[in-house]
Design a protein around this nucleic acid. Structure first.
Lengths: 198, 198
DNA sequence: CGCACGTGAGACATTCTTGTCTCATGCGGA
DNA sequence: TCCGCATGAGACAAGAATGTCTCACGTGCG
């Protein structure tokens, strides 16, 4: 019984620590274990009891990021309706986690070789499948590979997260900025007199 | 006399070291001073004689990146002709240095506060000016701010550089991928029967 | 030949971070 | 009240990277 109580308390704390760490590392990716602990309001010893080391912490954050991405993919129902709308929903779902994603994205570039978590491969595949679906349906152009579009989406998410964090762009525009640029590009569409497009 | 000789030799070496370091740090941004020295074919002592420390090395790389960006901006003649073509020229000019830029870009996110080199501000302004010019001329849409477009360009450059480095996309497509996505977006343009666009 | 100078190799102290450990404290339950 | 247990504080050793220094070597030049 008390076991259960304690377990639950620890679980709650673990989640809180994880989110604090994510928020801190998003801003300062080189933060030390001591800083992470302090940011979570616990001591370094306790932090170390919950996560065997820095690697374990980062791996836990990676798992969290993967879980959030998969949740976002599921919530966005990327296989339903027009691919265009699915992309909009996906970006909107990911927006709250873009900071963590940006951290993990750059963290992955930090090491060469060193196989990455298989979860990312699944997510890459889901996103690429969405783009591929859009190409098949004729919504998307076919001269840009799904792999590149996937990478580009990550890059735009990270850029936007950093730009927002540093106050260079307004947070409220986050989803709009990314979706509009990704879908429509910067070139102004040649206005064909009047058309159904608003 | 010998002064001149030695100065010139050192300058050449310095440039070689800088480029080796750029190439290495592009792949492994956490490379140690010893690895950087080894990559340049010199000893750690000599590396230290040319660059007071790691900070000095990174700052020198930053200066190199800034110089290359400014050279690219100049070579692309961003204030001439259609902004669309100017963007194409700019990306093409930057392509060879995208790896270094990606390293510096993520390096800048590593620290909070810590004022960044003013050179970046000038470059940001030049790029933003290009986008603003495109908006004024009616080539570009006006619902995306020049600041965001600038950030997005950096993000796409970094994404593409990493994707190429890891073999996820073909190097030869670099400029095409970035320019086409940035300018036209992923959405397939509604085909208005026949039009001047090829 | 002899000298000056850049260089490589390596020793060394220093600093930072990590990981482990111990101990006192406080809180909650039995 | 008493006990169990998680926590915080801090000491400690180990490892990595850095920065500094010395010394021997080789090359080029006078």
């Amino acid at each position: 019984m008390s076991h259960v109580r304690y377990r639950r308390l620890m679980a709650v704390d673990r989640d809180h620590v994880l989110r604090s760490a994510a928020a801190l590392l998003t801003r300062k990716s080189t933060a030390t274990m001591d800083e992470v602990a302090r940011a979570a309001g616990i001591s370094r010893a306790t932090l170390h009891r919950q996560f065997a080391g820095r690697d374990a912490l980062v791996r836990a954050l990676e798992a969290l990021g993967i879980a959030e991405c998969e949740a976002a993919l599921a919530a966005a129902r990327t296989d339903e309706g027009p691919a265009t709308d699915a992309v909009r929903r996906l970006v909107a779902e990911i927006e709250p986690h873009a900071g963590l994603l940006a951290f993990l994205y750059s963290e992955n570039q930090l090491f060469e070789g060193e196989e990455q978590n298989e979860g990312w491969a699944r997510i890459d595949e889901s996103v690429a499948t969405l783009f591929r679906r859009g190409q098949s349906s004729g919504e998307f152009r076919i001269d840009l590979t799904p792999a590149w579009l996937t990478e580009a989406l990550y890059g735009l998410l990270a850029s936007a997260a950093w730009a927002v964090a540093e106050g260079r762009v307004a947070p409220k525009d986050f989803t709009h900025m990314i979706v509009e640029l990704l879908l429509g590009g910067v070139r102004r569409p040649a206005e064909p007199a009047a058309r159904k497009e608003s």
